[in-house]
Structure formats: structure tokens, C-alpha cells
Amino acid sequence: MIHPASIVECDGSDAEIGPFAVVGPEVRLGRGVRIGAHAVVEGRTTLSDGVRIGPNAVVGTEPQDLKYAGEPTELFIGERTVIREFADINRGTAATGRTEIGPDCLVMAYAHVAHDCRIGRGVILANAVNIAGHVEIGEYATIGGVVPVHQFVRIGAYSMIGGGYRVPMDVPPYCLVGGYPLRVASLNTIGLKRRGFSGERLRNLEEAFHLLFRGEGTLAARAGRIVQEERWGEEAKNLARFMLESRRGLVC
């Protein structure tokens, strides 16, 4: 259903669009998309099946980047993702051409996702989180409220960042971080168990965590050992590789 007080310039036959919403001509709407009152969706934006856009959210607008010169860039939002009221998500720039949010994400009220970000499946951005340009967030990561994330930062999968803390460097996967300055507090054990980590899989990751963050020698040597030795599981190797590949420096 398209409310008669909305302005819809694309095919919205399979969507539900509330009063005073504005949807531009280049927008593509999947089945079962719901767009709330006063929301704005514009530019080359794809809302996949089941996406929900809350009232007054602004999605697909031009990037807030002085280098942007009107290039045709995109925003893609995956299936069943929910964008709550007053959230703001920008399209990409010519640098990558695309901002992407994966399926089953929750972007809470007043959050901002800037240009060229890549956000994986099942990520939760709490209220008023501010994600700068070119940030990459791995699947099932959770970022607490009012957290600013510096541009080009990578946030690892299954990590959790406490509310209110500034994120200037890469956050390792599977970790719980917080404090001033930001530090790794522990493995994100509760979050991992909720996602089905258990038994030998979790014990192997715990052992790798203690070696990487509490072991002797350089971090590069400890991480290299985990990558090379066969006894370490996939998650342990992912953690070690992430740390070796960091360019901005690591939250440790």
C-alpha cells in the first residue's frame, strides 16, 4: 500500500509506504519493504526484500565528502535489515562506488553510516552510533550507543564495543572492548555462545586469545605462530590474520 500523501517515483507495488515519505526514481524496492512516514529514500538505492525504514530516516543521500563530484554511486541494503527512525545512511563515493549493509542488520535511531562502508550480516548499531567513511564491520558485530568510529577502521566479526567509547583503531574479531583509551577486555564469550560457539571450538579460540594478548614475544610472532600451526581452528587463525593485516593499528 502506498499512502496517497507520499511521493513515490519508482515501482512501489510490492511495498508499504507511509504518509509524506519521499522515494526517488532510481530506488529499487524488494518485496515486503516498509517505509515509514516522512522517510526519504533517494539515489541509486536498493532495499532488498523485507527491509524496514523507520519514520524520518534518510537513506541513500549524497556522501558527505568534499571530493564527491556527483558520480553515480550506490547504496545496497540486504534482506530484512531494519533502519530505525532518524537514521542516516549515505551512498558511496567514486573511491569504491558503493555503501553496503548486509542482511538481518539493525541500525537503531539516530545512527549514521557514511560513504563506502561495508557492514556484514547481522550487525547491530545502537542508538546514535556514528560510522565514518570506508569503515568495514564484520558479521554479527555489536556497537553500543553513541560510539564514534574513525574512518577506515575495521571492526572484526562477532566483536562487541561498549557504549560511549571512541574507536580510533581496528577492533579484533571475537573480542569485547571498552574503556578510555579503548582496550580489549576479554573474549566476547557470551556473544559467541549466543551465536552457537561451544565445546572445542570455543576452547581453541580462548587459548588463542590468551596466547595473542597475554603471551610472550612480539604480537607478530605470536600471531604468525597461530597462522602456521595446524592445531589452531579456523576462528583462531581468523583472529591472528586480522591482527597481522591491520593497517591502522589495533585496539589491544
Rank of each mutant, 00 (worst) to 15 (best):
residue 163 G to R: 07
residue 192 L to R: 02
residue 32 G to D: 02
residue 144 G to Q: 05
residue 64 Q to S: 12
residue 184 V to E: 05
residue 165 Y to D: 05
residue 161 I to N: 01
residue 146 V to E: 10
residue 153 V to R: 04
residue 30 G to Y: 12
residue 211 L to C: 10
residue 13 S to R: 14
residue 93 T to G: 10
residue 217 G to F: 09
residue 180 Y to T: 14
residue 112 H to L: 11
residue 96 T to L: 15
residue 206 E to V: 14
residue 245 E to S: 15
residue 144 G to R: 03
residue 55 P to Y: 00
residue 203 R to P: 00
residue 234 E to C: 02
residue 100 E to W: 09
residue 225 R to M: 13
residue 225 R to W: 00
residue 178 G to N: 10
residue 125 L to D: 04
residue 45 T to F: 07
residue 70 G to K: 12
residue 153 V to C: 12
residue 29 L to V: 05
residue 202 L to D: 10
residue 116 D to T: 12
residue 136 E to G: 09
residue 232 W to E: 06
residue 110 Y to P: 02
residue 201 R to T: 14
residue 241 R to V: 14
residue 146 V to N: 10
residue 235 E to D: 15
residue 122 G to R: 06
residue 27 V to K: 01
residue 244 L to N: 06
residue 219 L to F: 10
residue 63 P to Y: 04
residue 99 T to H: 05
residue 34 R to W: 07
residue 207 E to L: 13
residue 5 A to C: 05
residue 162 G to P: 01
residue 244 L to K: 06
residue 83 I to L: 14
residue 104 D to V: 12
residue 28 R to T: 15
residue 120 G to A: 12
residue 33 V to C: 06
residue 84 R to G: 11
residue 231 R to F: 04
residue 205 L to N: 04
residue 116 D to Q: 13
residue 27 V to Q: 00
residue 59 V to K: 02
residue 28 R to Y: 00
residue 247 R to I: 00
residue 128 A to G: 08
residue 16 E to N: 10
residue 71 E to M: 11
residue 127 N to C: 03
residue 104 D to N: 15
residue 18 G to S: 04
residue 219 L to P: 03
residue 248 R to P: 08
residue 56 N to I: 00
residue 3 H to L: 11
residue 84 R to W: 08
residue 236 A to F: 04
residue 205 L to E: 07
residue 182 L to E: 10
residue 62 E to S: 10
residue 8 V to T: 03
residue 180 Y to L: 13
residue 149 V to P: 05
residue 81 T to M: 06
residue 190 I to F: 06
residue 230 E to R: 14
residue 132 A to R: 08
residue 238 N to A: 15
residue 3 H to R: 05
residue 233 G to A: 12
residue 116 D to L: 12
residue 26 E to S: 14
residue 10 C to M: 09
residue 125 L to A: 08
residue 81 T to Y: 03
residue 44 R to S: 11
residue 233 G to I: 09
residue 115 H to C: 11
residue 120 G to E: 08
residue 158 Y to V: 03
residue 37 A to R: 04
residue 145 G to C: 08
residue 171 V to I: 15
residue 143 I to K: 01
residue 190 I to L: 14
residue 11 D to A: 12
residue 212 L to A: 06
residue 112 H to Y: 14
residue 117 C to V: 08
residue 146 V to H: 10
residue 251 V to E: 07
residue 37 A to L: 01
residue 57 A to H: 02
residue 106 L to A: 10
residue 239 L to K: 03
residue 234 E to W: 02
residue 41 V to T: 01
residue 90 N to V: 00
residue 86 F to Q: 10
residue 216 E to V: 11
residue 44 R to Q: 14
residue 230 E to Q: 14
residue 173 P to R: 09
residue 86 F to P: 00
residue 149 V to M: 11
residue 100 E to H: 13
residue 115 H to D: 10
residue 178 G to M: 05
residue 184 V to N: 06
residue 120 G to C: 09
residue 201 R to W: 07
residue 164 G to D: 05
residue 183 R to D: 13
residue 127 N to E: 04
residue 242 F to Q: 06
residue 62 E to F: 00
residue 9 E to G: 00
residue 22 V to F: 11
residue 11 D to C: 12
residue 114 A to C: 13
residue 195 R to L: 13
residue 80 R to A: 11
residue 224 G to V: 09
residue 118 R to S: 13
residue 213 F to G: 06
residue 80 R to N: 15
residue 112 H to G: 07
residue 188 N to G: 03
residue 194 R to Q: 08
residue 144 G to D: 06
residue 70 G to M: 13
